[in-house]
Amino acid sequence: MTMAQLSLLFLLVAYSVAVSARSFRRQEDTFTNPINQAKGADPCMRLINGTYFMTSTQNTDISMWMSDTVEGLHTAEKITLFTDDTEGRNFDFWAPEFWYLDGTWYIYYAVAGNYDDNTHRMHVLRGGTDEADPSTGPYEYVGPLIPDNFDTWAVDGSILELDDARYFVFSGQQTDTPWTQCLYISAMSDPVTLTGDAQIISCPEYTWETAATPVQEGPEPITYDGTTYIVYSASHCSTIDYALGLLTLTTGANPMLAASWTKNSEPLFSKDEEAGVYGPGHHFMFQTGDGYYFAYHGKTLEDQYSCGDERTTRVQPFTFNSTGPVFPAPVAVDVAVPEPSLL
């Protein structure tokens, strides 16, 4: 073989290796939905120092998964953080969210007692102090989170931090009407204490918020470019019409007043029958190295009329424009989605 032929062979081999490497990187740079095959409702997900941490409704416990990639969450080991057989708070653990506040991890969740959904209330756990690892504990029960004026059905608690103040936002039953879930806000004096009365900031009114039952739940605050928003879920979770809506806080206004919030008349994110995604909602937004992503749950069968374990966690990027968050159309299962860049 001549030197020219050897050179050509070397170039061909190098090209083949480069193509293979690029193909491998492309595979590594994407993930597919769903992230979990069952019990994936109400996800909370964060990217912390290059590691993804995720929780979702497990009903019987509060658990977490962790991975260096979103794709890796498919096979990540389940880490059980907390169980409780105490009468009065031992049934249907829903929508745990983990927050690092004042140097400590806390988990906010709804739980009922004695197999009675009507007793669902918000509760809080206290965990470890390692900011880089919310899976460390042990997590210990602190107590219920019940506003002075609102000892009734409540779920889906989250945290709003604004202008050096902290608030607890949640979904609760409006007791003076047939079953209606509104969004409430309460001031917090510390991560485990609510102060004063809870105030309604929004109730369902549009058709897309009232499928099967008038519902607003899963409120998730986010502040971007000086404006605060709450993205929430609407309509009953059993329906294929479950969707996300948007509230915008008037700059400088008191977040405890309903008049301070403006609601979009159209949903922000909803089903896509062509993609086979039904009832998408109850999301959590998190920041990555190249922008923002959100985790949410959805269903793949049009006839899945339930709030059960067939709801699976999905993840997609989203953006902002001058009017707030801009969510894309839901992607079908097994469609490649770009892995986020690490922070």
Rank of each mutant, 00 (worst) to 15 (best):
V192F: 02
I159M: 13
T213P: 08
G50A: 12
P325Q: 01
R311M: 07
V192L: 03
T30I: 15
R314E: 03
D156P: 03
Q287N: 08
F98G: 01
D130R: 09
D334C: 08
S260V: 02
P134Y: 11
K263S: 11
A154L: 05
W179G: 14
A329S: 09
V13T: 08
L183E: 12
H123S: 14
W94M: 01
D241G: 00
G308I: 10
D309H: 10
A18T: 13
A76H: 01
E28G: 14
A211D: 11
M64V: 04
G103A: 12
T83C: 13
P34M: 02
P330I: 05
L249K: 00
G172R: 02
P338V: 12
F286P: 01
I222C: 02
K271C: 06
D225M: 11
F98W: 10
A243W: 06
N59Q: 10
G281C: 10
G245D: 02
T152L: 11
N118K: 09
A41E: 06
A41M: 05
N59K: 12
L247R: 00
T83Y: 07
W153V: 02
R22Q: 12
T30G: 06
E131V: 12
L301M: 13
M285E: 14
W65N: 02
T227F: 11
V277S: 04
P280I: 02
G245M: 01
Y15F: 10
D29E: 14
G137V: 15
M54N: 04
T251L: 09
T75V: 05
D156F: 02
I48K: 03
M285C: 09
W99N: 15
W94P: 00
S135C: 10
P280R: 00
S202H: 10
V326F: 05
F91G: 09
M54K: 07
M66T: 15
P34N: 05
P267I: 05
G40P: 13
F82Y: 15
G291E: 06
E209F: 00
S202G: 14
E209S: 00
I230F: 01
D309K: 14
P134D: 06
H236N: 14
D148M: 08
E274L: 07
G143A: 06
E71V: 03
P138E: 07
T69W: 02
P147F: 03
G143F: 05
G113W: 10
W65A: 03
N114L: 06
S202V: 03
